[in-house]
Amino acid sequence: MKLNVNGQPHDIDADPRTPLLYVLRGDLQLNAAKFGCGLGQCGACTVLVDGEATFSCVTPILALEGKGIVTLEGLGSNDHPAPIQRAFIAEQAAQCGYCIAGMMMRAQALLQKNPHAGDAEIRAALEPNLCRCGTHMRILRAVRRAAQMMQTAQAGEPQ
């Protein structure tokens, strides 16, 4: 079946019941989405589906034909990091970092819809995602910084 990941069409040869996470990590060799629980309880596997934060570990690919899937790799790269990535680096918002890709995708989904999201909205949006190292204060700061960067970018955009 066909899947659109990070703007590229892919022919996927996998059982349609396969959760997206294994297709991303196995077939497409993408690292960012992580296995955390396989139950939709921790958010380490979060990706965007049509702009919405989604647990890839419980989403079978058969539900995703024709939808736009974006992983952290689709936002930016080590050489050309996206605002959210620059914000997390600037705030040093990681300890072990295993949960961070999922955090960033959930934050990205929020900020794409509402770049003016306040602290309460950011906290509420990140509620499904767990961090075990206790990096929460930095994650919140990084998302607020990313929001500012996105607002500035938006304001500076030509008409």
């Binding site: 139950l39 309880q41 647990f55 419980v58 989403t59 499904p128």
Partner: peptide, 25 residues
């Protein structure tokens, strides 16, 4: 919308499918 985790308490959790399933599905 699933069943959200209750804060700081044991509670069943079910993931919501609002994002991954469209209206037809």
């Amino acid at each position: 919308y699933g069943l959200r985790a209750a804060e700081a308490a044991r509670s069943p959790i079910m993931p919501g499918f609002a994002a991954s399933l469209n209206d037809r599905q």
